[in-house]
Amino acid sequence: MIFYPLGKYILLLKAVFRRPEKWNIYRKEIFHEMDSIGVGSVGIIAIISIFLGMVTTVQTAFQLVSDLIPKSIIGSIVRDSTILELSPTISAIVLAGKVGSSISSQIGTMRVTEQIDALEIMGINSPGYLILPKIIGAVIMIPLLVIVSIALSILGGYIAGTLSGAVTSNDFIMGLTNGFIPFTVTVCMVKSVLFAFIITSVSAYQGFYTSGGALEVGISSTRAVVVSCISILFADYLVAQLLL
């Protein structure tokens, strides 16, 4: 049955978006989350993005065997596939592993050690206090990370293409600028925001409804990553179908 967890998830989200007790405490938490989710993930996003661009360029060049197609098309293909699919989706999958598992184990540990009960007893809306700052932090920072990822990915493609001699610098840059459709960036940002929401809310849900002990915290965190990844790819398809 998928309907029972789905209903529980929606009810949790309803509680998350209740009016905060005190905005200035939430604001502090949001900055903290922006730092840990966003700044804390720049390194890994940078590394995977550069390689992603390099691989895309080399493989696209390999597939272009006909002399009738200008080499500059490599630049266009790298640009579009990076913006539309690779940067937002691969970044989101990587962040589901990094950020999602940490959110779920943090909240799950708070659940099994009764820290969430302690919040409730004090009269604090625990879903709001624990989850809202994470969602807001991620929805602000993950799109920025994706922009960084696009830039580095294209840079990686440029380096790999010119170093290997698959495409000249001029051709690559010409390809990048030719036939650019700004709407692809809009689609990319829609995806990023959606993925950010999925990673944080799904992982928080898994953590929030953990019961048991350390073992169950581990299980929740695994499940957070798996469910986030599947939901990301499903949403990816939906957005592509609806917007393109």
Binding site: M110, T113, E114, Q115, D117, A118
Partner: peptide, 8 residues
């Protein structure tokens, strides 16, 4: 609480 439940 039984385990104190301090915010760690």
């Amino acid at each position: 609480f039984q385990g104190s439940a301090l915010f760690d």
